[in-house]
């Protein structure tokens, strides 16, 4: 723990040293100035409104992707035909650059629902594929046991599938949440929906307010970290409750 704090401190020191070396706040500001700006912003209602709305859009898109990814992943593991049908779509969504989707969504739906849709499109393939992989790791010997005892479907889920799925799903959620914040905010920068972190970053770029840009970046980092920790904690609690342990 102490070692981790020391490493973070060293990086912050390097960042501050770089800012001092550059000496121009329109190019680079240090953590002290960024922190100061963040504190100044944090006392305004607009800051919380912006941060909350972006977090809600990203969280909403991720939750939709989670439900669809796990649901369709489980169904596709059960029915090979569905897996075959979904495979090209999932590959395409994985490969197409976010910017293409952003432009399409802006044209079709406008900027209001942009973040939600983009986060869904980015997180869904990760969660779907991790679900498929996790369920594929279910212990074959236990499945044979379940077959012989004619175990009920829910008992199979509790005893065999959930423990196989959970590690894959945890790493999938961790990855997808990180990507959600990155792609969600990137989409907001392009689409500039009202009251969004992306719009704030866009204005910071236009007016060369590097302190605000770095302050909002710190907010994104904190949001991503809190979402990941919070969601994984919730996932483990739910899994334990479902398994009855």
């Amino acid at each position: 723990m102490k070692c981790k704090a020391l490493i973070i401190f060293l990086w912050l020191a390097a960042w501050q040293a770089a800012a001092w070396a550059v000496g121009r706040s329109v190019i680079l500001v240090g953590p002290l100035e960024a922190g100061e700006t963040l504190l100044r912003m944090a006392v305004t209602a607009e800051f919380w409104r912006t941060a909350t709305l972006t977090a809600a859009r990203i969280g909403g898109g991720f939750l939709l992707a989670f439900c669809a990814g796990v649901g369709l992943g489980a169904a596709a593991r059960r029915w090979q035909l569905l897996q075959d049908i979904l495979a090209p779509a999932v590959s395409a969504v994985k490969s197409v650059p976010v910017a293409c989707f952003v432009i399409l969504v802006l044209v079709w739906l406008g900027s209001g629902r942009l973040t939600l849709v983009i986060v869904f499109l980015i997180a869904f393939p990760v969660l779907y594929l991790q679900t498929l992989e996790g369920l594929g790791r279910a212990d074959g010997q236990l499945l044979e046991m379940a077959q012989v005892f004619c175990m009920k479907p829910w008992s199979r889920v509790r005893g065999i599938y959930l423990p196989a799925l959970l590690p894959s799903l945890e790493s999938g959620c961790s990855l997808a949440l990180g990507l959600s914040w990155k792609s969600g905010v990137a989409a907001e920068v392009i689409g500039t929906p009202l009251h969004s972190i992306g719009q704030e970053l866009y204005f910071a770029k236009i007016y060369l307010e590097m302190d605000r840009l770095f302050a909002w970046t710190l907010v994104i980092l904190a949001g991503s970290f809190l979402f990941e920790r919070g969601f994984l904690w919730l996932l483990r609690r739910c899994a334990r409750a479902l398994e009855g342990t």
């Binding site: 175990m151 509790r158 005893g159 342990t245």
Partner: peptide, 15 residues
């Protein structure tokens, strides 16, 4: 062939 994370009683109850 027991479900490792579950107790002996739960393993028996599951079937």
């Amino acid at each position: 062939r027991l479900c490792e994370h579950l107790s002996a009683v739960t393993n028996a109850a599951l079937v």
